[in-house]
Design a binder for these strands. Structure first.
Lengths: 184, 184
DNA sequence: GTCTATACTACGATAGAC
DNA sequence: GTCTATCGTAGTATAGAC
């Protein structure tokens, strides 16, 4: 064959990574198959050698984004978790959706998506929550902190003014720090 | 004229309300102009007698959704705020996006949208935050609670299992109650 | 494995009849 | 004010050359 097996796998991985970034920036539904392929230097017709449909790509993108998330890495010490939260609740993250967490950017689309997508999301959200719960020794607090981070990013990105965005991030950081240190 | 001036205004209001619900359920971009008009018993061609473009409709939908939100009503006593939070963080709200708050459902699309949309969002989010800040006597806490509520709803709606959804909501409610009562 | 070409559908938007 | 018809574009997906 003219193309090696590893080449197909590399193309697939490039497509997954690139599509994740494009989806987080502009929305998954808003970007066509041709655009996703063009971003990795290919044409639209080649897409279906890698995925049977655009919906299947979405499922794989969600899997990749949620499993590769830096906030889901183990082992997660308390100190490392606090450093993660600082980076998560930063202006850099607000202004860089394509390189950031998929949950604030794609959460609503995942919720509206087909069942396989939501099941994939549930699996990795539960994994994330359990990791944080072990570190914090409090399962409920883990869910609350995840919600706090995601909500703050959604709100900050809705705002037009950067000072307002920073206000939201700072408030959220202070709120979290108070709760976590009190719980220590 | 065959149609009264009030009739046009009524059609416009029906369209705004219906489009908001459809957008919150399936996403604003995902629904075509013809579908939005069909939902109020009209055809696609009549749309442009009411709005110059679909983008303009989005701006007006965001204005209506954020200004009419039950969480933004004044006067907002501390007791009323707590009742609002209970309703917001409920399974009923999770399963009823079309009748619920626009922020978790449309936040990402608003963030990706054109500038007029984000400016409209900023105005009403600031209004909401100031209302809550007066009630809580703490501007930062207001931003943090808004973020917590929005994040919890986004996360809960991503999950496939209802028990998991309830877990997130309960954790978020407990987290908020602890913080608010401690701050009292 | 990727290309071009294409079928089919849907989109946003406009024109003109009523 | 709303309709039908239509233009131009872009969407998902498929077929066949290379």
């Amino acid at each position: 064959m003219r193309y090696s097996t590893t080449h197909k796998e590399q193309t697939r991985q490039k497509l997954l990574e690139s599509s994740g970034a494009l989806a987080k920036r502009g929305g998954f539904n808003a970007t066509g198959v041709a655009g996703l392929m063009k971003a990795i230097g290919l044409t639209g017709g080649a897409f279906y050698n890698h995925f049977p449909s655009k919906d299947d790509l979405f499922t794989e993108v969600v899997r990749r984004e949620l499993s590769h998330s830096p906030i889901a890495q183990q082992p997660m010490t308390r100190q490392r978790l606090e450093r993660c939260l600082e980076q998560y609740l930063s202006l850099a993250h607000v202004h860089n959706p394509e390189g950031g967490c998929a949950i604030p950017a794609l959460g609503a689309e995942i919720a509206q998506g087909p069942l396989p997508v939501r099941e994939e999301a549930e699996h990795w959200l539960r994994t994330l929550q359990q990791t944080w719960a072990e570190t914090l020794e409090d399962p409920a607090l883990a869910w609350a902190l995840i919600s706090q981070c995601v909500g703050a990013l959604v709100i900050a990105r809705m705002l037009a003014n950067e000072d307002s965005q920073q206000e939201v991030l700072s408030a959220s950081r202070a709120f979290i720090n108070e709760a976590v240190h009190e719980h220590r």
